[in-house]
């Protein structure tokens, strides 16, 4: 099998992706060409593991790795996820045949962050289980792990601190997404735990800079901003809300009756 052509394509592809300001259209064209070539040589999705395949598999793996990076740079969620799922067999199933890739942990780290930003915590954990305990010490993996811990605790303050320690520029895109989803979580917390809050403090707590953003959030959540620059939250009054959940009670009691009847 002749790999020269593939190698040529691959190197121009990786080079153009690694460029600080990549030409996305050109990159995508190269990627399509690469995929066609790989598919024609029956490497891309081959399930057979043979010795002579290994070189081809390595090329395929690198192609996909850079395809993932390209998707991150282009800020495309869908193609990112698709490429990751194509790439995963190369990391896990061919583990014993291919020497480990340098990019593996970085890419998996980005993927973990992606899952976090989408609030897909269950998947985050199943994915994490696949990563060996020694590998979790790597800065790429430990970063999203720490973020997850902070989110669970509600330690949003620490998250902001942690942002500055991000291990790679590639994490930026999903960090932005994460902030967006966190902001709504924080807003939920704030409105039940504070009776009122100064506007300048709210900026800090909600990780905001622009006043218009704050006003938008306030409108969404029905917050009142009074003239002395204080946000007032509607405190729910428990006593008024107490209603007898008759629907649920009726259903439960009928279930008991049915079960009792079965016993007797």
């Amino acid at each position: 099998m002749d790999f020269n052509e593939l190698y040529r394509l691959l190197s121009s592809f990786t080079n153009s992706v690694e460029n600080d300001f990549p030409d996305f259209q050109y990159c995508n064209e190269l990627l399509t060409q690469l995929k066609i070539q790989l598919a024609e040589q029956n490497i891309l999705f081959s399930s057979k593991l043979e010795k002579q395949n290994i070189e081809g598999l390595k090329i395929a793996r690198q192609t996909l790795e850079f395809a993932v990076i390209l998707s991150v740079k282009m800020k495309e969620n869908k193609s990112f996820e698709r490429h990751i799922s194509q790439l995963k067999p190369y990391y896990y199933d061919y583990e014993n045949f291919l020497e480990p890739s340098e990019l593996k942990l970085k890419i998996l780290g980005i993927y973990l962050l992606f899952l976090l930003s989408q609030n897909r915590i269950a998947e985050f954990h199943t994915e994490l289980e696949l990563i060996k305990i020694e590998e979790r010490k790597s800065k790429f993996i430990s970063f999203p792990m720490r973020l997850e811990e902070f989110i669970l605790d509600g330690n949003y303050f620490k998250i902001r601190e942690a942002f500055s320690e991000k291990p790679s520029e590639l994490f930026d895109f999903f960090l932005e997404e994460l902030i967006l989803s966190l902001r709504s979580q924080i807003a939920e917390c704030v409105q039940v735990s504070y009776p009122h809050l100064k506007v300048k403090d709210a900026f800090e707590i909600l990780m905001l800079k622009d006043k218009n953003d704050l006003i938008e959030i306030a409108q969404q959540n029905d917050w009142l901003i009074s003239e002395d620059d204080t946000i007032h939250f509607k405190l729910e009054n428990d006593n008024e809300n107490v209603q007898i959940p008759s629907d649920r009670l009726i259903r439960e009691i009928i279930t008991y009756a049915k079960e009792m009847e079965r016993i007797i």
Binding site: G154, Y156, F157, C189, V190, V192, S193, Y194, D201
Partner: peptide, 23 residues
Amino acid sequence: NDAEFICAKAIKDGVIDAVIDHE
């Protein structure tokens, strides 16, 4: 600061019943 946020989350999750005085 850590403590303040953690308390806020705990209030929201219904773990504790309290209010925060930020000032």
